[in-house]
Amino acid sequence: MKQQIADSKANPGATGEADDCLFEYLHAELVNYVLSRSSNAAEGEEELSRLEWMGFSVGYRIIERLTREWSRFKDELDMIKFICTDFWSSLYHKQIDNLRTNHHGVYVLQDNAFRLLDKVGTSSSKQYLKESPRLLAFTCGLLRGSLANLGIISTVTAETTTLPSCKFHVQVQKI
């Protein structure tokens, strides 16, 4: 299959491009699957680490593809900015709305209409708020994986208070 990869580079028009909604459906199935496998559901704690792990491995790989033709990043902030703008807009169709940092390794990325939460509810509806972390775990991993391959080891958590918006907290580990 090495052949195939070489082909796709030479003639990018030849390979198909998957429609957006496929990722959303697939993501829904991932969540479904992970929940069905999580054993200690009874304790009220959902085991989302598998989901996060899958996100990590996707992020780790996709960032390699995305940054292939980019010049070197200046510093950590530059990488985070890349994540907020190009990375985010090509994956989730919009840029991060707000980026905050304390300049000591904590970044807060806020998206006011996160794609995977967009159809789940509006700010007035609290019905699915409890379930929403399931839809964020994959993306947390995606962020962590991307940053990891850029050389930033981090912890990523998500929080959501009103529905289509959510915040991702990136805590960079100092080595």
Binding site: D20, L26, L30, S57, V58, R65, L66, S71, S90
Partner: peptide
């Protein structure tokens, strides 16, 4: 002044890789 990412292509790769990780 890096090249702009092609949203459609990226999305497709996201799908492919997500499927792979699954």
């Amino acid at each position: 002044t890096g090249t702009k990412l092609d949203a459609k292509k990226v999305n497709s790769e996201l799908f492919t890789l997500t499927y792979g990780s699954l």
